[in-house]
């Protein structure tokens, strides 16, 4: 197990390095820091001195890969690639363009993101699996047909509609929950109700359809027929045989997104004013703060790869037939 883990992490390194190089090329080579400075300072009437000062202040005044003016190792280390891109590997995210420490901001904003993402995941799982089991129990009947039609209808609605509709209906007309905002500590719960409801509702269509197809696949298998031949009731079959076997793909599907929960939800957070990482990213995109976007790209990649590794590990835990070699 440990050997496998180490090997997987070693495999992941070139991928993270590749992403690092790719984002570096995107942010520093396609458009030079010179372009960025001019963009931030305004296109016209900007003096060369102002551009240089902007670059100096943010440490963008070094060469890209090779510093010819420095000695020895410093020719490699005193470059943009080393100080801005490779430093991400030590989770040193540096400073944002507005001068704040990105690492500190991330550690602060992580918690609201999790406070929103975890309830959505758990409630969503519960709701989707319940509906999917119901449809699977009544498969082939009118309930199943119309249930699937409803699912397709629900998943054809734009996610923005659920958010805006929820805000207008629940927040503005019925006044059941505050429209947006956040509070420190436990008091945050009443601000989280509406986004959680909206988040769960928006995913019901695709989720239920997906779990239903998982269950139907299991129902078609031989062991289910055997169980039915033994005289087990349909409900007992569904819970004891179908659900238990379908848990393996369900579990792995959940594990793969677990690390990504830290990144938060871009839309929900920015609409409902929750100070998480999702709204952090959106703010950075809209302010064109490239340092934050670069940090988030790196963080997102690492978390995604972590999710893949965890998925492989969870297979061994959930399914004794799988051995890691």
């Amino acid at each position: 197990m440990t050997a496998y883990l180490i090997r997987r992490i070693l495999y992941a390194l070139p991928i993270v390095l590749g992403v690092n190089l790719f984002t570096f090329a995107l942010f520093f080579v396609v458009n030079t820091p010179e372009d960025m400075a001019r963009m931030h300072l305004g296109q016209k009437r900007v003096t060369e001195a102002a551009v240089q000062a902007w670059k100096m202040e943010r440490g963008y005044d070094q060469p890209l890969f090779w510093n010819a003016t420095a000695e020895g190792w410093q020719a490699l280390t005193e470059t943009l690639f080393f100080t801005k891109s490779l430093s991400l590997f030590t989770f040193d995210f540096g400073q944002s363009d507005s001068g704040r420490d990105i690492g500190y901001d991330i550690s602060q904003r992580m918690w609201p993101s999790l406070a929103l993402a975890i309830p959505i995941l758990l409630v969503g799982l519960l709701v989707n699996i319940t509906f999917a089991l119901l449809l699977a129990l009544f498969r082939g009947t009118a309930l199943d047909t119309w249930g699937v039609v409803l699912c397709v209808g629900l998943l054809s609605v734009s996610g923005l509609f659920y958010i805006i509709g929820g805000q207008v209906l629940i927040g503005k007309l019925l006044k059941l929950a505050p429209i947006s905002g956040y509070d420190v500590g436990v008091d945050a719960w009443k601000f989280l109700i509406l986004p959680v409801v909206v988040g769960v509702l928006g995913a019901i269509g695709s989720g239920t359809r997906w779990y239903r197809s998982l269950f139907l696949e299991e129902i078609g298998k031989d062991f289910v027929r055997t169980a039915r031949a033994k005289g087990l009731s349909e409900i007992a079959i569904l819970f004891r045989h179908v659900l238990r076997n379908a848990l393996i793909p369900i579990l792995t599907g959940v594990v793969v997104i677990l690390p990504g929960l830290f990144m938060g939800s871009l839309l929900l957070e920015s609409f409902f004013g929750i100070p998480g990482l999702g709204s952090y990213t959106i703010d950075a995109i809209q302010r064109q703060d490239f340092a934050i976007v670069r940090a988030m790209v790196f963080l997102g990649t690492v978390l995604y790869i972590l999710g893949l590794i965890l998925t492989d590990l969870s297979y061994t835990v959930a399914d004794p037939r799988v051995r890691l070699n």
């Binding site: 991928i15 993270v16 992403v19 790719f22 984002t23 995107l26 942010f27 396609v30 458009n31 372009d35 960025m36 001019r38 963009m39 296109q43 990504g260 990144m263 871009l266 990213t281 995109i285 064109q288 490239f290 976007v293 670069r294 988030m296 790209v297 997102g300 990649t301 995604y304 790869i305």
Partner: peptide
């Protein structure tokens, strides 16, 4: 490529294009 979160990759590329277009 698929390891980069999609929205962030799009955001990064579009930001770069905006810089290019304004310059």
């Amino acid at each position: 490529l698929s390891s980069v979160p999609g929205v962030l990759l799009i955001a990064a590329a579009i930001l770069m294009m905006q810089v290019y277009m304004s310059n």
